[in-house]
Design a protein around this nucleic acid. Structure first.
Length: 644
RNA sequence: GGUUCCGUAGCUUAACUGGAUAGAGCACCUGACUACGGAUCAGGAGGUUCCAGGUUCGAAUCCUGGCGGAAUCACCA
């Protein structure tokens, strides 16, 4: 974070000839650094105190005041032993005298508002407007792995997965823009009792049906059998409750005053494991699978391949992809060798029944089992093994796990163990936890049929976009195919933006009605700003405007300055979003920029500006805005249409 | 009960990490192009930032204690 020195102090009153006061290489001398360095020097020269950049509070000046950047002077009043207003006045004079890029200042209470010279902004625009990759940061030479989606293969993707996928994807994009090399992976939970339920139900009740024969999307097809299993199991359980055996058990095991309903609700798992015919069969299937029984494995492969086919389709619709898939069926035995390593180091200890544990009490994390008494690994052991496997595969510096916040404890434990094992990437582990998605009607529950299916939701928003577009009729001269493409982009923008704009950690309420909104703080609103620019530029091309004329434009409108200051912020925001793993920052930035542009567009004419210079300048400004909007939305996984 | 996260307008949310009069969108009311695209713009109304203390020039933000919600504390994954 420390900045190099070398900032431009005034030699004479005129700026240096051919002044390139900043460049885009690593040694960028940006206005924020310049001012900060200036403040440090001012405090030293004026008050003889040494301060660091961290002690300076510098904000964008609020709209209601004159200026671009504001220094809060309160921290310096003690050093100066003067009144805040006086300190502000002195520092303002000093800074404007010493820094060529500042042209004026004012002081209000303890706030020093600095005005950056228009010349600086004009040069900044000259620099960025031809570059369509503005915002891309130089390579950091570090590799980061992002794990997201991680579905089970017994049912289709739902709204919860959508939030996960969007967060994972946009974080990946942002990390890449921040200069990391990114590896996108998902863990596929393709084994276990759940998938056996689907398999069993298909075997018992499927009569050889296939997705092809029924025309059902293949992951939904498999999911339907999972639901069917639960249904049949429920029926079986209900019938059993009337048997003598059940009555005897109720008599023997129920607590005083406990109703039969309450008892049997609590007894469900035991029933599944010990009494149920379906339960027994499902468990037998799991054991057969683990033994590698050919028939079972073949069926497993077939059903999984159906699910993958369906997932791929959904992923493609969402515009996401992965570099590598880790299958749980291949990793669930991993991690056992680690246990030996941990025992040797004295990290793990063994109980009399042969189970292996780690004591994390000094990290307030209690004791944790890492190996069952039968010697098999548990969830956390797999994750330890998988992390090591990934390091062997890619040699990454950081790993990000995009997983719902219900697993916070799990990852705390995992990371603590990795640290104690002294894995080289242990400090680069991060759990990107996000809150569950609720519906206005309450929590989503698959068993109660209140989940929002991913494919249904996508179809709904795109349908909404289609209706909207039809009413406007702005696309009627395009081919059917082009129209569909644009409508798709609009619908997906609405959905994606609606979810990403919310801070990840916050539990969110998802109102399907609001998610299809296309007005106000939405994806389509941002797209519209972009489309407006494109439309203006198309029109402008035929007008023979000489872009060189912008050199004669020397006095900026307030709104123009404000827009440039926002563009200036973009790379810093990317860095910040990458550091915090927070894509919502970028979404809010895009919205604010689009809003400012809409207002500018409304208040000032671009192609009919008073002078040729203004026209040229505003075309360049608009071009730069469009590029940043496009790049910003690209980081969120949102495509921009050229028209809408 | 322990730990972690969250609490801001009726609803969905922001606030540059402690700064100025807490900023938007939706919904509600009113207005704006014979002009570069009205998926836009402007105005109105809507707030004890869950409560109480504390820290200081200054608190939605930090600390303490409550209240409310969520998650987790399995030889499940």
């Amino acid at each position: 974070m420390r900045k190099r020195g070398l900032f431009l102090f005034k030699m004479g009153k005129e700026p240096p000839a051919n002044n390139r006061q900043f460049s885009t290489d690593n040694e960028t001398m940006n206005i924020i650094d310049i001012i900060q360095q200036g403040v440090i020097k001012a405090v030293k020269d004026l008050y003889g105190a040494e301060i660091t950049a961290e002690q300076i509070t510098m904000n964008n000046t609020r709209k209601e005041f004159e200026g671009d950047y504001t220094i809060v002077v309160f921290p310096f009043v003690k050093m100066a032993r003067k009144k805040p207003e006086q300190v502000g006045e002195e520092m303002g004079q000093y800074l404007v005298r010493e820094i060529v890029q500042l042209e004026d200042f004012n002081v209000i209470k303890g706030f020093l508002n600095l005005q950056v010279a228009d010349q600086y902004w004009l040069e900044f625009l000259e620099e960025i407007y031809p570059k369509d990759d503005y915002g891309q940061l130089p390579p950091k030479g570090q590799k980061v792995m992002v794990e997201f989606s991680s579905p089970n293969t017994n049912k289709p993707l739902h709204l919860g997965h959508i939030r996960n996928i969007l967060l994972g994807w946009s974080s990946s994009q942002i990390l890449e823009a921040a200069g990391y090399e990114v590896v996108k992976v998902q863990v596929v939970n393709d084994r276990g009792i759940a998938i056996c339920k689907s398999m069993l139900a298909w075997k018992l009740f499927g009569n050889g049906a296939t997705p092809e024969s029924t025309g059902v999307k293949s992951d939904h097809f498999v999911g339907d059998y999972y639901v069917l299993f639960e249904q049949k199991f429920k029926e079986e359980y209900k019938a059993w409750q009337k048997t003598e055996e059940a009555k005897a058990i109720f008599k023997e095991k129920s607590k005083e005053e406990q109703s039969a309903d309450a008892f049997f609700k609590a007894f469900k798992n035991t029933y599944f494991n010990e009494y149920s015919s379906l339960g027994r069969q499902a468990k037998a299937m799991l054991i057969k699978w683990e033994e590698g029984d050919e028939e079972t494995v073949t069926l497993w492969k077939k059903m999984n391949s159906w699910v993958y086919e369906g997932f791929d389709e959904t992923y493609e619709k969402m515009g996401v992809s992965f570099d590598k898939l880790y299958y749980e069926s291949e990793t669930y035995l991993l991690g056992k060798e680690v246990v030996q390593k941990g025992m040797d180091k004295g990290l793990f200890y063994q109980k009399d029944d042969n189970s292996v544990w780690i004591d994390l009490e000094d990290a307030k994390l209690d004791h944790k089992l890492v190996l069952r008494s039968d010697g098999t690994s548990v969830y956390i052991t797999q994750d330890i093994g998988t992390a090591m496997q990934r390091y062997r595969d890619y040699g990454v510096d950081k790993m990000v796990y995009v997983v719902a916040d219900e697993q916070n404890y799990h990852f705390q434990v995992l990371f603590e163990i990795m640290k104690r094992l002294e894995e080289p990437y242990a400090d680069g582990l991060y759990h990107l936890a996000y809150g569950m998605v609720d519906l206005p009607t309450g929590k989503m529950k698959s068993r109660e049929g209140t989940v929002v299916d991913a494919d249904d939701l996508i179809a709904e928003v795109v349908g909404e976009a289609r209706g909207n577009s039809g009413e406007r009729g702005t696309l009627s001269d395009l081919s059917e195919e082009e129209q569909q493409d644009i409508i798709w982009k609009i619908g997906m923008a609405a959905l994606k933006f609606f979810i990403i704009k919310v801070f990840p950690k916050k539990r969110m309420v998802f109102d399907p009605k609001e998610s299809v909104d296309m007005q106000g703080q939405t994806g389509p609103y941002v797209q519209n700003a972009y489309v407006r620019v494109r439309s203006v530029l198309r029109k402008g091309e035929g007008m023979g405007i000489d872009l060189e004329a912008s050199k004669a434009y020397t006095v900026l409108e307030t709104q123009e300055k404000d827009l440039l200051a926002q563009l200036f912020q973009f790379p810093f925001l990317i860095e910040e979003a990458a550091e915090n793993y927070d894509p919502s920052t970028i979404a809010n930035f895009c919205y604010t920029l689009a809003k400012s542009f809409h207002k500018f567009y409304h208040d000032h004419s671009i192609l009919n500006a008073d002078t040729e210079a203004a026209k040229a300048f505003r075309i360049k400004l608009s071009t730069a805005i469009a590029q940043v909007l496009k790049k910003g939305m690209y980081l969120l996984g949102i495509d921009m249409p050229e028209r809408m």
